[in-house]
């Protein structure tokens, strides 16, 4: 029986070009905290890559660097061969924010939010074209949200809230989709629907980065993993990289303890972990 991750690996191998190229990236903040230290990694295009790390491991900083918000002290990030700021102007990144980052009282409807995924590609007055409206309708349908399209975003359930922003990213139709903790506070149905959509998008050629500290189902959906703990602990195909040793180095003692409790093989570094062995990483 072929596991999902092996299928993903085969797809990755067919697609040679580099989507995200990070070279010796170091980022520090004015309070002296060094968030990323000499990070180098390459992510292939047309793959789902899980970026794993504990809180404070540099995940958010990496997102900021990818979006050009955080200027690197050293090193560089290139997206599909171009500099970040140049590529952002060319509809390169569709960003799906954490639910906590959104003001849910904001007076916009589901449809308004999804239409924001088209805004950069509209005319100067930002009047939606027929194509924009069609893409918004299609995206809403794919996430199963047509029925609530006119609701104010605060009137949605936790799972629906996630779906709105997935729909916005789908409507944007960018080359790289960047999701920040997409599975937090989401029920199983939504998680499975979401993973199906991500796989469809991947198969259509979109590069997908899932930034998360939640280890469950990582081997199910990801083709690549990148583990961060200020430095890159490991980066590569999930089948070879998602190992107990690497997880231990990424998350520190917590995971090692949990692995012992759950009876998993904490010491053997060469065995990729299956889903049943995985502990829930405490938030």
């Amino acid at each position: 029986m072929r596991t999902p991750s092996l299928r993903g690996l085969a797809l990755t191998a067919n697609n040679g070009s580099i989507a995200v190229d990070i070279q010796h990236l170091s980022v520090g903040y004015s309070n002296g905290v060094i968030a990323l230290d000499d990070v180098s990694a390459q992510l292939p295009s047309g793959a789902i890559c899980a970026v794993l790390g504990a809180n404070g491991g540099g995940k958010s900083t990496l997102c900021k660097a990818l979006m050009g918000i955080q200027r690197p002290h050293r090193g560089s990030v290139r997206l599909f061969g171009g500099a970040v700021n140049r590529m952002l102007k060319r509809n390169t990144i569709a960003y799906v924010p954490q639910s906590d980052d959104i003001d849910w009282d904001f007076p916009v409807s589901v449809q308004d939010v999804v239409m924001m995924g088209r805004q950069g590609q509209m005319n100067w007055l930002r009047i939606p074209s027929r194509d924009d409206k069609r893409r918004v309708a299609q995206s809403l349908e794919r996430v199963g949200m047509q029925a609530v399209a006119r609701r104010q975003i605060g009137e949605l359930s936790g799972g629906q809230k996630k779906r709105v922003f997935i729909a916005r990213a789908l409507a944007q139709h960018a080359r790289l989709m960047l999701l920040d903790e997409p599975f937090t506070g989401v029920d199983m149905t939504t998680e499975n629907d979401l993973l199906d959509i991500l796989r469809e998008e991947r198969n259509a050629g979109t590069t997908i980065m899932v930034v998360t500290h939640n280890l469950s189902s990582v081997p199910d959906y990801s083709d690549q993993v990148m583990m961060l703990n200020r430095r890159v602990i490991a980066c590569g195909p999930t089948a070879h990289t998602f190992t107990a040793t690497h997880l231990g180095n990424t998350f520190g003692g917590v995971v090692n303890e949990l692995l012992k409790v759950t009876g998993a093989v904490a010491g053997e570094g060469n065995v990729a972990m299956s889903r049943s062995q995985l502990p829930e990483y405490p938030q």
Partner: peptide
């Protein structure tokens, strides 16, 4: 009147504003 949609996007979600190339 001319720019309210961009101002609204900026007000609502700065990261999306960047993602839209604005």
């Amino acid at each position: 009147a001319l720019r309210w949609k961009d101002l609204l996007l900026f007000t609502f979600d700065e990261q999306q504003t960047i993602g839209q190339g604005l």
